[in-house]
């Protein structure tokens, strides 16, 4: 073989390997970096991040940070669609595909192999209350906004589960007067409940047990924050009264359900309860005229006084010395 022939062969091989690179590009990988309404911010795969459906509040206000990787360097644009069959080139090849709808989202990827994009959830889903289901989002890599879809593999799809239906109002809600708190119970809702929020409004009722607070005038949007929560599907519990509440204090109490997507439900019909004195040992022991001095000098439960541990420290020291001596004698 002549040297020029050999050189031409090598050059041709090098050129072929260089040109072959785009053809070997893999499909786009989609991962989630963060979601503004959720505390998780680590880079995870989409299925893990989106195991919990997006709720109504998230749809209206949250953004999802996506990372698109393995994009072909020849592609300069990411375009978004939903429906079905969007992975086919039909979208940009002027072939009618009514099942594939343009989301009118487009991002220049600036010839990089990885691009991070924050997308409002409302751009991907229709935030209409009462809806729930799964929408499949397609991402296509294009040469430019008007060109055809490129080679196979330059597209990706991912499902987005959403649940914009809040749980129903807990029915049969009851609460009873008590000293340290009130026992509440209700009937379970039929939704997939994650927890129940409990509300307690001090002074929310008059002495006759009539509701006076306006915190629950809009039962879907109480104007007070939850006082405590009951995790899981519990249908009863105890709400402790705030410390320092005096006998005769009144409270307006209610609960609402939170479903597994985080949608808040309607509050149950509020109930009025009163802090009363229960006949306990302490009230009997200290309720007499000649009550012991300890009744008035006792403090609220808290850390032990500092005098107690001192003997223990001495004993521990003695034990340590004894062990040392015992080892030496053996």
């Amino acid at each position: 073989m002549r040297p020029t022939t050999l050189c031409s062969f090598l050059l041709a091989g090098l050129a072929a390997s260089t040109l072959a690179a785009p053809a070997s590009a893999q499909g786009i990988q989609v991962t989630v970096r963060s979601m503004t309404s959720r505390t998780r911010v680590q880079l995870v795969d989409f299925a893990t991040q989106m195991a919990t459906p997006i709720n109504f509040a998230e749809c209206e206000s949250a953004t999802i940070g996506f990372r698109f990787s393995m994009v072909d360097r020849n592609r300069t644009q990411l375009a978004f669609f939903f429906g079905s069959m969007c992975e086919q080139a039909s979208v940009r090849n002027d072939v009618t595909n009514t099942s594939c709808t343009d989301l009118e989202l487009s991002y220049a990827i600036d010839l990089r192999t990885q691009v991070d994009v924050d997308i409002p959830v409302s751009s991907l889903l229709d935030c209409t209350q009462g809806m729930s289901g799964v929408r499949t989002i397609y991402v296509l890599a294009l040469n430019d906004p008007t060109s055809e879809v490129g080679a196979a593999g330059q597209n990706a799809s991912f499902p987005m589960a959403f649940d914009f239906q809040g749980p129903t109002e807990p029915s049969g809600f009851t609460a009873r007067n008590g000293q340290s708190g009130t026992s509440v119970s209700w009937q379970a809702t039929t939704d997939r409940v994650q927890r129940y929020d409990a509300f307690l409004v001090p002074g929310g009722c008059d002495a006759s047990g009539n509701l006076t607070t306006d915190a629950f005038d809009d039962p879907d949007n109480p104007t007070v924050s939850p006082y405590t929560t009951f995790e899981g599907t519990a249908t009863s519990g105890t709400i402790s009264f705030p410390s320092g509440s005096a006998e005769g204090s009144t409270f307006a109490v209610t609960v609402r359900a939170i479903d597994n997507a985080g949608n808040t439900g309607t509050v149950a019909e509020p109930v009025c309860v009163t802090l009363i004195t229960i006949d306990t040992f302490w009230s009997a022991y200290c309720g007499t005229a000649d009550a012991p001095e300890a009744c008035s000098s006792s403090c609220a439960a808290g850390p032990a006084r500092s005098g107690a541990p001192a003997p223990w420290a001495l004993l521990a020291l003695a034990a340590a010395l004894g062990l040392t001596r015992r080892r030496r004698s053996r």
Binding site: Q179, E247, T277, F281, W282, S283, C286, S298, G302
Partner: peptide, 19 residues
């Protein structure tokens, strides 16, 4: 050193405790 506590106590002192 006997740390005692009782609950509920009274509305003014719901969890009395002492030594």
């Amino acid at each position: 050193f006997a740390r005692w506590l009782t609950s509920p106590g009274t509305p003014a002192n719901p969890s009395p405790a002492g030594l």
